[in-house]
Nucleic acid binder design. Structure first.
Lengths: 195, 195, 195, 195
DNA sequence: AATGAATGAGTTTTCATTCAT
DNA sequence: GATGAATGAAAACTCATTCAT
């Protein structure tokens, strides 16, 4: 019995397996077999759905980007107070599903890939700019434009920096302290105390 | 051609070539032939001197770490005023030879590698801790211990974050504005204006 | 071409090809390509099924050992008279499929390998001891225990010695005279004439 | 100061190192560097003296053959009684310097090589025939021609067989019991007791 | 006489990809 | 829809050999 509608299930499983495999072996040693095995299918099937390794990798990156975007948008939509909008962005970046070691590894791998791969670079820049623009927008409601721009860049850098540093820490990532660090820097710079 | 004492020369050339090659092709697609060609030698020689690709990569990482360490130490040694010591660390991290796109790519690649490679992780942690400890030491001369610790972590994250973000920017990296961003955040948090 | 259940077929073909290749080129010059070509497959497939050259070589050795063991067991099972059991062992060792030049070369190569390779040594000792024990058991039914033990060792050595010497002879191996030589030595020592 | 007369010293050292290296790593994994290192010289020098690996290997084989030949000739020259001449041949084959594990490994490696290498085969046959002929000559003085021929072959095979089997035993080779086994078989077949 | 430097050819090994079923 | 079979191209790695010094 040919199962119907397997495609989206397989695609998700393969992308999720890709993230895990990147964490476990790194981009350089990643093989289609690895990924397929983790997804519980044959390597042939991965090709069937994604055409080639490159495509699977890019699809994974797009998923990562989209997930983060959604995470932030959802939180933004639920925030009415200006200050909360800044918080929403910060917290979105450190949300549980984004801050899993596997996901962190995958992001790092893509930052790495972006150094020489055009499409990866392009995709990553979309995220970078959106984060920046989201932050500046939110900050502009609290402070003047110039400060918002400067602080936007600082905040974005701080988010990435905390992220990358925590990736080296042993044990599970500590979401709360990561958020606290960024928030206190941002609101401290605005002369506000963190609620 | 075969003169005596070529080993150190070749080793340096190969490590330098590795950095360039990582930038140009990325860890994943890097081949020993690539590296050797860039260093102007045969792939066999690279193996002769480093034993295996892994070892060459780790040697490159160690060089990167050592270079950054020296860069910072030299600047620290030349700084007498407490505030300048903080600056020395920040500026060391953004010094011209550290902030070259090739070097940035290599660092990124190693952050990536550290996610799954034990030795890379260990080495990177040495750097991480040293940076942190250097910063906290320097900050403690300006502010209280608790603030120094918190701000040390923030500064370290900010350095890494600016670094990673600038790696995506097109064109040559703008050292001065990177430094300005970090310094203004740090000294701003301490209620000081940046000299 | 790709049918199901090819694995056992390919494994047998590769092991058989290995024996032929050892005879033709010797262990030292043996390449996976050689073997694969003889088996009519690609070198990649040989790796796919055996993992590495070492493993293929050991698998070949195990096959050789198992084949000889079976050869002897079959003959032993068909022998009822004590004297015939001794003969069964001798003849098993010189059976047509064991005494082919290709097989002799392979055995020799494994005796050679056993000098420095642990696993090869271990495997070969299993055969050595089994042959010895089979012989002593059979001889004990004809003579006293002490003689059986001494003669068992002599016979085993004689079998191996005839084997190794015939490997240098030109032309096809003369099974019958090899057997005659060993049998007459053994039964001569027991004061029996060879039937 | 160029040392005079180094050539014979180096050649001996290299040949001896070859034997050791064969024992330690086996023909298949043997490298010129291995050998040279064991001999305490550079690989380049080994080439200087032997031209190529093949030549070094053949020179080693010739040395092995010559040493055994001398060993036997010396003993034969010292034997006057017919029975002692048979003993001289047997004991020569198990003399301490022939029965060292390193030497046994080397011989085995050459038996293996003789399966596909013409020159090795030719050289080995010289030894084989000489042993056979020596034995038959000696035996003819004790028994009739036909028996001498048959027994010569048996003895030669027994020597090789004991040799090969003892190579698998753990610990140092037991020269005396090896000799005893062969002598008792030979003299037993002649109805003589071993003195 | 002797060596370290260097290479290039050859070998093992890995893997994305294809394809018949 | 899914797989195991199979390959070939590319990569790491090894090593005999050459050669300037």
């Amino acid at each position: 019995m040919p199962k119907l509608g397997m495609e989206p299930i397989r695609r998700k499983a393969l992308i999720s397996a890709t993230i895990d495999a990147i964490h476990a072996k790194g981009m350089a040693r990643l093989t289609m077999n690895d990924i397929a095995r983790r997804a519980g299918v044959s390597a042939g099937l991965a090709h069937h759905y994604f055409g080639a390794k490159d495509q699977l990798l890019l699809a994974t990156m797009r998923t990562l980007l989209a997930d983060l975007g959604e995470e932030i948008q959802t939180r933004l939509a639920a925030s009415t107070i200006p200050q909360d909008r800044v918080r929403a962005i910060i917290r979105g970046n450190f949300s549980t599903c984004q801050f899993r070691p596997e996901v962190v590894s995958a992001w790092l791998a893509f930052y790495d890939a972006a150094q020489h791969d055009h499409e990866a670079r392009r995709l990553l820049r979309v995220y970078t700019r959106r984060l920046q623009s989201n932050l500046v927008h939110a900050l502009q409601e609290i402070t003047d434009r110039a400060t918002a721009e400067r602080l936007g860049e600082t905040t974005a850098a701080l988010i990435d920096g905390v992220w990358i540093r925590r990736s080296l820490a042993s044990g599970d990532p500590d979401t709360e302290s990561a958020i606290a660090l960024v928030e206190s820097a941002v609101f401290g710079a605005l002369g506000m105390s963190v609620a």
